[in-house]
Amino acid sequence: MRFISRVCRFAAPVLFAVVATLAVAAGDISSSSPSVAERLTDARKAIDKGNWRDASYTLSVAVREEPNNADVHNLLGYYNRKKPEPDLAKAFEHYNTALKLNPKHKGAHEYLGEAYLMDKKPLEAEKLLVALEKICGNKTCEEYQDLAAAILKHRTIK
């Protein structure tokens, strides 16, 4: 019985250390890395500051971590549309992916409409405005208002 008691006194701390080490290796370390939501916040800040390289890096990590996240694809579309040398093809790709993942994503509808305006396709933007009215249930949601203003501005510039 003494032998078992000694083994237990020795084994318990060792076993605890092994379990703690395995827990850290299995995932506790990841708790120190930012969530995708935090990465999106960081990417928005980088975009607002014109720090395109940081935005690109942060968004590439976010899309690797959550490839089926509509918000990630929406912001990737925004990034590609707003960077100094816009890539509308990539913007359209990401907005459409966001809408496949979440057909009622208001931000993707708005931004896709703005991309269509850049691509000189105002009728497509107007279709998205109609869709936004249905999704929002009115004409007062921010995304509807922003796209409506962009369409009006596009008309007056012509």
Rank of each mutant, 00 (worst) to 15 (best):
A125T: 01
D71V: 00
K82E: 13
N74R: 10
S35D: 00
A23V: 10
S35A: 02
S56Q: 14
R155Q: 14
C136D: 08
K127G: 10
A62F: 05
E110L: 11
R2F: 12
R81V: 03
S30L: 11
G107L: 13
F16H: 01
P84I: 02
C141L: 02
K83M: 11
K49N: 14
K106I: 09
Y111T: 05
I47L: 09
L40H: 05
K121D: 08
C8R: 13
I29H: 12
Y144R: 04
K49C: 06
I4Y: 12
E143T: 12
P13I: 00
A108F: 03
E126F: 06
V14Q: 01
P86N: 05
G137F: 04
K139W: 03
D28Y: 12
S31F: 15
E142H: 12
A55N: 07
Y95W: 09
D42N: 14
K120H: 12
A131S: 13
N96R: 15
S60T: 10
R155P: 04
M1A: 14
A125K: 02
G50K: 07
N138I: 02
I151P: 03
A149I: 06
I47V: 15
I47T: 07
L88N: 12
Y79V: 05
E126I: 11
A17L: 13
R53D: 14
A91I: 05
A23Y: 10
L76N: 06
R81F: 10
K120Y: 09
E124A: 09
A149D: 09
L75N: 04
K120S: 09
N102I: 04
Y79E: 07
Y79G: 06
N69F: 01
V24R: 06
D87M: 07
A20I: 00
D42Q: 15
A26R: 13
R81T: 12
H109F: 14
N68Q: 11
V7K: 03
N80D: 10
E142S: 14
L99K: 05
A11Q: 00
G27E: 05
L129E: 02
V18T: 08
V19F: 07
H154D: 13
K83W: 08
S35C: 03
L22Y: 07
D87G: 07
K127S: 14
S5D: 10
K139V: 08
